[in-house]
Nucleic acid binder design. Structure first.
Lengths: 203, 203
DNA sequence: GTCTATAACTCGATAGAC
DNA sequence: GTCTATCGAGTTATAGAC
């Protein structure tokens, strides 16, 4: 693990991240990445050999950032329900900061499922994820859910899809003389917390 | 409105639909579409002039199919709550039949929001949509929601994202020795109906 | 390491025969 | 209407000078 990236390499990765997040693997242009980084195309190949390898690096770091939110599921200072609430908040904050991230990950995971499986294993070895924590808590009687997998899917869906489909929701809201903005997001967050409480208290 | 498409034109549209749904506007290849249709590239241009015009036709018919699910919001035989339940079922059935449709629409709407706005107006003139029906019902006191827009977003998210992110959920489920299959979908459906009941009965 | 110049290739589109 | 052949724009990738 290098502590300081060579400045050029770092600039390229930042530029590539911006470009790939916006346009995806096939839509992105090596020329644009070079321009953003303030260098020329040949250097991209000097540092990363080809487009796919460069993309891989970006994809990997995006996945890493995404899964780093799961840390909270192992936080000893919190009880189980607090962890679930905390994770929902983390996801919402994360996607609010990087709104393109959700669609990017979904698009590329769908396009290349095998690459994704490999990388997930790399990122998650040993760490608790939401689903494994839910199954665990269910088995130990900490919570009593109808179906942990369904709860998991619903929760992730409510946290993620609003960002994935933001353009669609914005248009539909405007057509109906209402809006989908940061205030709505605050209210969505509150409603998601109610949902969690309601589901986890069915015990 | 032609009753019988010339066979070639119809074959091209079917082939284009398959290709565009899988790869999107930029990922799709005219050569692949020609191969699927059993003809050659030149004929694609003879019938549809260029790639974008062909895509437009496919996109438009996908949108039309998607919004046709909204019919139920104007069904006089049902009361308001039945309509909402019915619409959720329709969406789940629709996406179960065309699982790639959700991601396709999202990708292309995000990539070309303006085209989408035009086409939405074309598809929706006069018809009730879920959101407009919710706002209406709220105003008339038929239901009493905390925030109709938030409920709308949550409901659509729970119905749609499980299909958008199916590859992701499948992988994560397998990692945890459980599964995400058609049985899970039945249980998801039940849970969504509970959610609707719970939200609409807060009055 | 960084640059310029260009090779090699992909792909949408068109010309023109049948 | 349908085909073969080919053009030309746009892109990734490489050769080679500095």
């Amino acid at each position: 693990m290098k502590l300081i990236d060579s400045s050029t390499e770092h600039k390229i990765l930042e530029a590539a991240k911006t470009e790939f997040l916006e346009f995806g693997l096939y839509g992105a242009r090596m020329q644009n990445i070079a321009n953003r980084a303030g260098i020329n195309k040949a250097l991209l190949h000097y540092y990363f050999r080809n487009k796919e390898k460069l993309f891989d690096k970006v994809f990997e770091s995006a996945l890493e950032r995404y899964f780093s939110n799961m840390d909270i599921m192992s936080d000893d200072r919190l009880d189980f329900k607090e962890r679930v609430h905390g994770l929902a908040d983390r996801f919402l904050d994360f996607l609010n900061e990087y709104p393109q991230m959700a669609l990017f990950l979904i698009k590329e995971v769908s396009a290349n499922q095998i690459l994704f499986i490999e990388k997930v294993d790399k990122n998650l070895r040993g760490n608790k994820t939401l689903l494994s924590a839910l199954l665990d808590a269910q088995q130990k009687g900490v919570v009593s859910l109808e179906n942990p997998m369904v709860f998991f899917v619903q929760l992730i869906s409510m946290c993620t899809y609003p960002f994935v489909a933001k353009p669609l929701f914005t248009v539909i809201a405007e057509r109906n003389e209402t809006s989908w903005n940061s205030d709505s997001l605050t209210e969505l967050r509150a409603s998601i917390h109610s949902f969690i409480d309601h589901q986890l208290n069915l015990a």
